[in-house]
Amino acid sequence: MTDGDDNIRRSPRSIDVKDITLENVRAGKITPEDLTIRRTTLLHQAGVADQEGYPQLARNFRRAAELTALPNDVLLGTYEKLRPYRATYFELLALSQEIAARYDAPETGDYIRQAAEAYRDKGLLKPE
């Protein structure tokens, strides 16, 4: 992925949904980054899901909210590391801590740590 894409994820700017109009596109007031979903939006959707009795969906949205902060290459790299036999136990723990700390993503960090433990118990780690 390009650096340009990475910057999209890091942008703090937020546009009101109702301002996403053809007029504003013509006036050059809309950038690609305005058309990405926000952390707060996903947290809001998580709240709705919880209220509706969908706790797993809510948890997914909370992880997704955290993942908005990850650049695409980091995001895809994290997925790759979670595939079978890709990482050692300590690599996964390190990844868990890095994601949690660097991107303010405690739920995702926790999820990766649980994966590390499961992989250790079930022989899904990269042989050291």
Binding site: N60, R63, A64, A65, L76, T78, Y119, L124
Partner: peptide
């Protein structure tokens, strides 16, 4: 894949 890798992917798309 593992259940965890698929689960992360679900969150990745939502993000």
């Amino acid at each position: 894949d593992t259940p965890w890798s698929k689960g992360l992917l679900a969150s990745a798309y939502a993000s």
